[in-house]
Simulated assay, not measured.
Amino acid sequence: MNSIRVVLVDDHRMVLEGLRVLLQPLAEVEVVSTCTTAAECYTAVARLQPDVVLLDINLPDQNGVAVCQQLTETYPKLKVIALTTLNEKSYVTRMMQHGAAGYVLKNASPEELLEAMRRVQAGKKYFSEEVQELLLQPAPATPQLPLLTRREKEILALIADGLTSQEIADRLFLSVLTVETHRRNILTKFGVSNTASLIKLAAQQQLL
């Protein structure tokens, strides 16, 4: 059986050495190069034509997402696996959109790394268990716009214009007490406790 030829890319030498030591006992894996920058990675891949690149996302000279995209576009048969501490859905999504075949966290065992490389070599995707759970989490619900009465909308607009409760009362021929009641109701509907937060949120939701 041909061994899986691997290039390791991480900005920390100690991490690279640790990975090399972890993978060394695996007969199926041959670490052909270690790189600390994107530039080194491009050179190594061009020269050695590996099967897999284990790629950290944080690199000193270029973002790992961009590196992944360039590698997979230049070498369509190359499999890139993100190997990172970043367990965030946005990073996983961006790496996969830019050509990554897998996403593995740095707490992975040598056996898991081998399984990941086997899987991507077979044309499949591989995610660490924690990453799978992250991807299965439902997307946050789109916030509902607060339902305001016509009067509340009028008062909200005047609050945004910087008018005081007394000035709003004079403008709308209401009592100050009535205006204050409307103001409290509006704050409650938006789930905020002060005027600055109210105006910011109302502007974000294009109500102003």
Score class of each variant (00 low, 15 high):
2 N>E: 12
3 S>G: 00
4 I>F: 10
9 V>M: 05
13 R>N: 07
13 R>M: 09
14 M>G: 01
17 E>K: 15
17 E>N: 13
21 V>A: 14
25 P>D: 05
26 L>Q: 09
27 A>T: 06
27 A>Y: 07
28 E>D: 14
32 V>I: 11
41 C>G: 01
43 T>D: 12
44 A>S: 13
48 L>H: 13
51 D>W: 10
56 D>S: 11
59 L>S: 05
63 N>V: 01
67 V>Q: 00
68 C>L: 03
69 Q>K: 13
71 L>S: 00
72 T>V: 03
73 E>Y: 06
73 E>V: 04
74 T>G: 00
91 Y>H: 11
96 M>N: 13
98 H>L: 10
99 G>V: 01
102 G>A: 08
104 V>A: 02
106 K>I: 06
110 P>K: 07
118 R>F: 06
119 R>V: 04
124 K>P: 00
128 S>K: 13
129 E>I: 02
132 Q>H: 12
137 Q>S: 09
149 T>C: 12
150 R>W: 10
151 R>S: 10
156 L>R: 09
160 A>R: 14
165 S>C: 04
165 S>N: 12
165 S>Y: 03
168 I>V: 00
175 S>D: 05
178 T>G: 01
179 V>T: 08
180 E>R: 15
181 T>A: 12
187 L>E: 03
195 T>E: 14
203 A>E: 11
204 Q>V: 08
206 Q>K: 15
206 Q>F: 04
